[in-house]
Design a protein around this nucleic acid. Structure first.
Lengths: 211, 211
DNA sequence: AAGTAGTTCAACAGTATTGTTGAACATTTA
DNA sequence: TAAATGTTCAACAATACTGTTGAACTACTT
């Protein structure tokens, strides 16, 4: 009983407000980027007075950093887990394509946001990910060598493979406003296009890599 | 003589200043985006007092629109000309890949800039390009049908072809800061990677489309 | 119940940024 | 060369945005 009360107290309320602010900030930063985001708008969406933002997160930069950090970390697992798996290259790329598309469908603004902010501060990613990222090149080099030796794929550099794979997956999300115009597609039609992408990309990759 | 003098007069000076402003604005907007750009900074780079910006271009929005319009138009010719050519699909895609990479090497910030600003105002492109863009889907549908009938490629939708082609070309420019971290590549190494991209992408596309 | 810690917000302050004005200067035209 | 037109800039004005303070309020603790 005492414990329950303690957990319903100001600390809990505090947490709830902090979360509401965080979610609102996440949404606004993702939509507008750091420069375009307004503290007022974040406060409005969180349903609080704007001075609360400063109470909880000191400054705009601080709040942004927290949001950016979490958002960046959300995109690591699908990449690393699938690539670290004990499997052959083509199975890994297939799995990656599916998992990455799932993540992208849930966070469609993420890639554009990430691009934009990494351009403002190219160091940010390195500070977060450390050497984790460099690992994937090494893994893929081994997998490629094996697959080539087994005659399952033609040779390709790990760098090109990564660029091609990510480009094929991410571009339709990054360039959505442009592609919608080019395709003269309404929103539902474009969503359907995106639904079919994982399979399309899998086929495309397998053909492209075939010996 | 009179003509020469007339051309060296205020009109010409006017033009020169306007161009300097325009170029500076182009650079700043491309680097920082609309929200991140500062009129002060544009004036500084143009080597003039900041009030001149308002004299020539009224408002920040006006100046931006002019820059955006010109920048967007610079990216149309390589797309349309190569795709309109009287040639078979694979020759067209090969030509497109080379020409588009040339354009991208000259304006490496363009794609990220375009993405960012189209997210702020998705209508902008439609207002500029009108139906020109829709045309490419139609052209490609015909080319694909012919190439499939001739047994030169396997079937693929024009939409997926466009998304794949653009994604493969543009992504290394869009995601440069990220890929440089992943590849643990310094600037010259990444430039070399980009040098090899056109040929790599050509091969990749041809394999992927092969029947 | 009084004290303590934590939460909320309205009003205020400081700063950055955009936009305006007017006067001095330069160039062209007549 | 005098009037007209166009160019430049320093100083000013207006606004938008971020950040601060203090007082009222709530809930928990003893």
């Amino acid at each position: 009983m005492a414990i329950i009360h303690a957990m319903e107290g100001t600390r809990t309320q505090d947490q709830a407000t902090e979360d509401r602010i965080f979610d609102a900030a996440n949404a606004v930063f993702l939509e507008a980027g750091f420069d375009g985001a307004r503290m007022k708008e974040i406060a409005r969406r969180a349903g609080i007075n704007h001075s609360m933002l400063h109470y909880y997160f000191r400054t705009k930069g601080q709040l942004f950093d927290d949001v950016f950090r979490r958002t960046a970390k959300e995109f690591m697992p699908p990449i690393l887990e699938t690539l670290r798996a004990d499997d052959d290259l083509l199975s890994k790329t297939d799995a990656f394509i599916v998992r990455y598309h799932e993540t992208l469908r849930r966070n469609p603004h993420m890639p554009a946001f990430m691009m934009q902010e990494l351009r403002r501060n190219p160091q940010a990613l390195g500070e977060l990910a450390g050497s984790m990222l460099g690992e994937v090149v090494g893994i893929l080099q081994v997998d490629i060598a094996k697959a080539v030796a087994a005659g399952r794929i033609r040779p390709i550099s790990a760098e090109d493979l990564i660029a091609n794979l990510l480009g094929l997956c991410v571009y339709p999300f990054l360039a959505r406003p442009m592609l919608e115009a080019v395709f003269e597609a309404e929103t539902p039609a474009y969503d359907q296009f995106l639904d079919n992408r994982p399979e399309t990309v899998q086929r495309f990759m397998r053909h492209a890599l075939a010996p």
